[in-house]
Design a protein around this nucleic acid. Structure first.
Lengths: 341, 341
DNA sequence: CTGAAAGCGCTAACAC
DNA sequence: GTGTTAGCGCTTTCAG
């Protein structure tokens, strides 16, 4: 309730001086002390809203992701929040549910709140960031880029990673490898499917069976039904490349319900299955550095917020736990468990 | 960039009229149309900061939880964000990491941002909400209450649930049941341990072995080391009641690494292990309605924000999937999988 | 029903 | 180095 005026009065100085003290601008030592004492006595809490109105930029960072419940985005978000907090910023959570309309809505709110910056995993490749760019808002894309805009981005190597993943399945002896990927026009889904195609083509000298190329929503339900459809095929696959973790969980549900168990049935998940990985199930898992992506993205954004104005940086994250040339962690969960204990 | 003045000018009306139109106050139809047209032409986006400064309350809800990466809080947060969005509010994410100092910091930011309301899972039972209460900020406690304050709360029956959980382990034939719970002074941890004690006392006619009563941090690491310590005991337990999901994951890691497998070794997790539950592992799981807690909490808060001023409501959530009198879902994962397919 | 104008709390010229 | 003061964009009395 106390304002900067109250503090100024009590300390016998002007509001400008109070503001200076509060913002770390050089001020006479005795005045500074008086201000601090007055502020303490009055339980003064600066009003960020007023500051934002005046400065035209808040201490809030907008974080837009398609699904907070996906551990991949959860840990990314946690990392961003932690980095932001350390620099005095707070995160405005925007779960777009993968819907462009929600995304547009949140984008408007972000502008309306004069957020300091934006970290976003675009819901589709048709995303419109014009308004945001016009206002000079710093933006960092994560996981997916924003086609048509030259923005900082932090992603993983989807095409190459998917190709190497598929090759691993091939090396494990599987010959009929299907790919269950996310929606069309979602960059990661398109790229991971492309990587799978490359590997299949390289091995077979021909394009993959169109029936094996399935696209669905990035969700457990999507993985479940897609797998069911694959098993209903006249010539069902003997292995599956799951383009993300939720799809893998879904397809695993279908598989297990039908008595098909990895590793006899080949399953490679592109992205971690956090809790599942602690159980002895023969699923191959490619670890994606979600936390690190969040950290790097936050750092890059903070740099922009504090004035950095260089050209866009496109960062492709190497994977943390390295066990082969690809830089990916391809241990089977059971092995990983053994190693880590 | 366009302000309400620009819109007013273009529409040939006063800013007051523009404001009225934008806020749904009755206005002459032709004027209203003119305002809307002008606003559209100018790509006008209202400035929420200015509104907040004037109204002294923003359209942001602060959500404070101890760990975003715990699926229990993740789904709760997602539910809150969704409900909030539907009412025009956005969520400010505050991951306190279970630390009172972080919590206090975020509380200050929340006040400073003039948030419309607060949903909080207190980091400890010594939480100080004075400042927040003084300012008349609506608060709803989730998962844990705030001792000393009479606030709306949405929780689960910890004592009773823990007791029935332990009884289930007893009914399954286990006789040496340990309890791994969270930190002291964390309400849920205290209460769940109390419920376990009740069950042990009722069955044995004596207090449980103090060695079996372990408290650690609510984390995978905590569960891991606690389980290791239990197994090192001269007379190790044959079953464990895990007071939350992360503890369960941790103790499971230790167990599996030592070749001890449920259900031969008794494990009951109080709280879901989302992805793990899809695998055929004999762990008993008590489902906690995290999503529903979030929904109810958000609804109660929104009521307060829009003026409700009745006495505090203390809501104890029943569990969703009901298979016994306790209202809890105690199916073993494998059975659940079979049922749900 | 509509308009004029004050003011929310703070920052940043600008003047001293 | 310090104080004065004009707004930031909006809502909301208060007159008319």
């Amino acid at each position: 309730m106390a304002t900067i005026y109250d503090v100024a009065n009590r300390a016998g100085v002007s509001t400008a001086t109070v503001s200076r003290v509060l913002n770390g601008v050089e001020v006479n030592a005795s005045m500074k002390e008086a201000v601090l004492k007055a502020a303490g006595a009055l339980h003064y809490v600066p009003n960020r809203t007023a500051r934002t109105l005046r400065r035209k930029t808040s201490e809030i960072i907008a974080m837009m992701i398609p699904d907070l419940e996906n551990p991949f985005f959860t840990s990314m978000t946690k990392a961003v929040a932690e980095r932001a907090r350390a620099s005095g910023y707070t995160v405005m959570l925007c779960d777009t549910d993968g819907r462009p309309d929600r995304e547009a809505e949140y984008l408007k709110v972000a502008v309306s709140e004069s957020v300091a910056g934006l970290i976003i995993a675009p819901a589709s490749d048709a995303i419109n960031l014009d308004e945001v760019i016009e206002r000079g808002l710093p933006v960092v894309c994560i996981d997916r880029t924003a086609p048509g805009y030259d923005l900082d981005s932090v992603v993983v190597d989807n095409v190459g990673g998917a190709r190497r993943s598929t090759e691993l399945l091939q090396q494990a002896g599987f010959r009929h490898i299907a790919c269950i990927s996310g929606p069309e026009h979602v960059e990661t889904a398109d790229q991971r499917t492309a990587g799978w195609r490359e590997a299949i083509f390289a091995a077979a000298g021909a394009a993959p069976d169109p029936d094996y190329d399935v696209r669905t929503s990035y969700s457990v339900a999507g993985g479940e039904s897609a797998m069911a459809a694959l098993l209903d095929l006249p010539n069902p696959p003997d292995a599956v490349f799951a383009a993300n973790n939720t799809l893998a969980v879904g397809l695993l549900r279908t598989l297990l319900a039908q008595g098909l168990m990895p590793p006899a049935y080949g399953v490679l998940a592109f992205g971690d299955l956090p809790l599942l990985t602690y159980t002895p199930l023969g699923v191959m898992v490619v670890h994606l550095p979600s936390r690190e992506i969040g950290e790097v993205a936050a750092d890059r954004l903070l740099e922009r917020i504090t004035g950095f104005d260089g050209p866009a940086r496109h960062i492709v994250m190497p994977n943390i736990v390295t066990d082969d040339q690809s830089g990916m962690d391809l241990l089977r969960p059971a092995e990983r468990l053994a190693n880590s204990s």
